[in-house]
Design a binder for these strands. Structure first.
Lengths: 256, 256
DNA sequence: CGAGATTACTTTACGCGATAAGGAGACGTG
DNA sequence: CACGTCTCCTTATCGCGTAAAGTAATCTCG
């Protein structure tokens, strides 16, 4: 159910992404009431507020005081709009990270984590066919500059980039979806768990013998301090992000 | 657009997941023509063939020679069906990996990678609210047993599990979505790229100055042997998986 | 054996999604 | 002023999940 990017006619989408000069003057016909920028902004606002599932052409139109069909004068179709949203959003990210490679890569990952939590809908856009917009390239360029200091080969750098991206996306997605699930169902992580855990022992009375390692893990957790202010899964995702990033960068160090 | 699991009434879904005894005998009414198992199998077949986007109640019904509404006698709603599909599919995976921890964890990751490529729709099911079925627990238990040998603390093990999961999912998703994009659009990775790359230099003539690191990476790649038999992105994803896993486990070693 | 309860499954219908098709009106240029 | 062009609207189609209500099959009980 991922949303696919870069599917449409590139002769139309690429100039929009790279803001090629409009070359539009002296047209007949009524003055356009809108422009692509305004539409993309409105679409991002809808997606931030309602998630990708709530992003419909009608919803964007409504926010702009026009019908869904009016938007088709400016963008070829919904997927082209998502391409533009995706690249525009990435403009928020920093394009340079100074200092030693490990600090720079960590800062890059932290910024990306925060970005994904601000715009969780970005995580639903598939990476398989990249958008090829300027800001996505900026983000990659920034990471590559930070990785320069490792002295790794191009081959290794490519794998590190992929691994870091998958990791940050996955961890952020866990956090974002947990938030989304709570909002959509009205059940907090705790509510959800308390509704299920008694049933689990009822339906699987041999749980402890069947899954000793899982029980060991749970027992270990019992001795840890609990952060009451953050929902369970978000806390878990954040911890995975921090520790996992550090482990991953240890692995990179070991390769140098 | 992730599909959410474990949303429905747990009093109904948990017994189905854990196959509690039916306690159904001597009912009035017509004989059931179907059963949950048959429905779940058909649904998995549909999702394997058409992807999660092609999984509709009508499609499953059609495969079984009944209407979509007939299925609602057996499963509460579509999301309950997805829960059952998710857990049933995981039954394919091994439940034990012997040998030293690194080999065992690598085998676990390899099996999971292959599993995700066989059933890419599994990747669209959110992890934020786990299904809590027996086979998902089996998979986790197997990984934990493999990680036993590292001697890490529960806290660290939890982060390693999360990191590994995010990583394998991300890499497999890249590969699966690339395949899916090619099938859906009829454009191979190469076709797709050849349609876009000339436009990129047209629309961004200063690409080389603006993105020197990206260009360096591309230049490095030019000197590498090319595997013609595998589409570009799938090859890239596989390489990221192999090298990334090795880096990640180096990082785990460093913690021990 | 017939009546009534219960269950399986069907048909129909609703609201919402993307977007094709075609029409109405606004505007620049001849 | 009229024509061609462009914007934006209305309408319509198809597919989705599933609510509602109807029909028919099969049990238990008298």
């Amino acid at each position: 159910m991922a949303v696919f990017a870069a599917q449409g006619d590139p002769r139309r989408s690429m100039p929009l992404l790279w803001r090629a000069p409009d070359s539009s003057a002296g047209h007949p016909g009524p003055k356009p009431a809108l422009n692509v920028d305004v539409i993309v902004d409105a679409a991002i606002a809808v997606a931030d507020a309602e998630g990708m599932a709530g992003l419909s052409m009608r919803a964007v139109g409504e926010r702009l005081g026009c019908t869904a069909m009016a938007l088709y004068t400016y963008v070829a179709d919904k997927s082209a709009l998502v391409d533009l949203m995706y690249d525009r959003a990435h403009a928020e990210l920093a394009t340079d990270y100074r200092g030693p490679w490990r600090a720079a890569v960590t800062a890059w990952a932290e910024d990306l984590w925060a970005f994904y939590l601000r715009h969780p809908w970005v995580l639903t856009v598939s990476q398989a066919r990249p958008v090829l917009g300027p800001h996505e390239f900026d983000v990659l360029e920034a990471l590559l500059r930070a990785l320069r200091g490792t002295g790794l080969s191009g081959r290794e750098v490519r794998s590190v980039v992929g691994t870091l991206s998958h990791f940050v996306r996955g961890a952020a997605q866990m956090s974002a979806e947990s938030r989304q699930a709570a909002a959509a169902t009205g059940l907090s992580d705790d509510d959800w768990w308390y509704a299920r855990s008694p049933l689990l022992s009822e339906v699987a009375p041999d749980f402890a013998e069947r899954y000793p390692e899982i029980c060991w893990l749970e027992a270990e957790r019992a001795g840890e301090p609990v952060n009451e202010t953050v929902p369970y899964m978000e806390n878990e995702a954040r911890e995975t992000f921090e520790v996992g990033l550090s482990i991953l960068l240890d692995g990179v160090s070991a390769r140098m």
